[in-house]
């Protein structure tokens, strides 16, 4: 009985999300040129990774002890998880604008959780572009790597992509809590975080000095998004700073961090005082 109610609720939520997303896409279609440019922007934005990868493949033998195919695998896993994050959570790092424009007050009056309204607030068409580049880069990586795909590796890759998306969502959600108090100061930090994840996350952290590599593994969990999952898939554990078992459990980090970030967000939301308008 209880299971049936939960299922009905889930179906209702999914239908509502789909309806809101469709409306958002229709709204974006009002500006046709901007819509087309949005998809192109998504492709081009992430294509910078491909540009660097092309230079890497054509001119240098590898990077930080990884072959060029291995580096491409790290970059493609990072991009795949970023695309999933973009589809589901991209609006979280726009919270500063939502607060500044006074929209959050309206969200508080509606019979839907505020966080869900934030993530459904706008659909980012650029994510189609992210996804296109991610898939291209992944197929390039596979062509250069002689990986033996087992059922475990396929399941692990899927879990790693979802886990990576949840890590990005967790970090951005935790940072967005600050936007509830000071939206203008937070705007640049979300951009910086996005930039940091996209630059440091695409390469083997072994190229960085030990302290920085440690910081990006244990403080800002960049390593857990793509570097450690790629290490598991290729068996390249040298320079990863964590034991093999932790690398194997890297997709779980996303779930744990996301749940913690949501608790932090709810705590801050309960103390929110309107500052926009």
């Amino acid at each position: 009985m209880a299971g049936g109610t939960a299922l009905r609720r889930s179906v209702y939520r999914l239908r509502l999300s789909w309806k809101l997303t469709s409306l958002n896409v229709r709204a974006r279609l009002e500006y046709r040129v901007e819509f087309a440019l949005g998809i192109l922007a998504g492709i081009l934005w992430q294509a910078s990774v491909m540009v660097f990868a092309t230079v890497l493949i054509s001119r240098f033998p590898g990077l930080g002890g990884w072959s060029s195919g291995g580096v491409l695998l790290i970059a493609s896993i990072r991009l795949l998880s970023h695309a999933v994050y973009g589809v589901l959570f991209a609006n979280v790092n726009r919270l500063h604008a939502i607060v500044q424009e006074g929209k959050l007050e309206a969200f508080l009056l509606r019979p839907l959780p505020v966080y869900r309204q934030v993530v459904l607030h706008q659909f980012h068409i650029n994510t189609f572009g992210d996804l296109a580049v991610a898939v291209t880069l992944f197929s390039l990586a596979l062509r250069r790597l002689a990986l033996e795909w087992t059922p475990f590796k396929i399941v692990f890759l899927c879990a790693a992509v979802v886990g990576g998306a949840l890590i990005e969502a967790a970090v951005q959600t935790a940072l967005s809590c600050a936007a509830l108090r000071s939206p203008t100061a937070t705007a640049d930090w979300t951009g910086w975080l996005d930039h940091t994840l996209s630059t440091f996350g695409n390469y083997p952290l072994a190229i960085l000095p030990g302290a920085v590599s440690g910081l990006l593994t244990f403080v800002l969990p960049v390593a857990f998004i793509a570097y450690l999952p790629a290490a598991v898939l290729t068996g390249t554990y040298e320079g990863t700073l964590v034991p093999r078992e932790i690398a194997l459990a890297s997709p779980c980090a996303g779930v744990v961090l996301f749940l913690a970030a949501r608790r932090l967000w709810n705590w801050n939301m309960r103390r929110y005082e309107g500052i926009g308008g």
Partner: peptide, 15 residues
């Protein structure tokens, strides 16, 4: 609107 045009241009210019 020009936000996406700015994104595209930013990339093209950087590349």
């Amino acid at each position: 609107a020009n936000s996406n045009a700015l994104h595209v241009s930013h990339f093209v210019q950087s590349l």
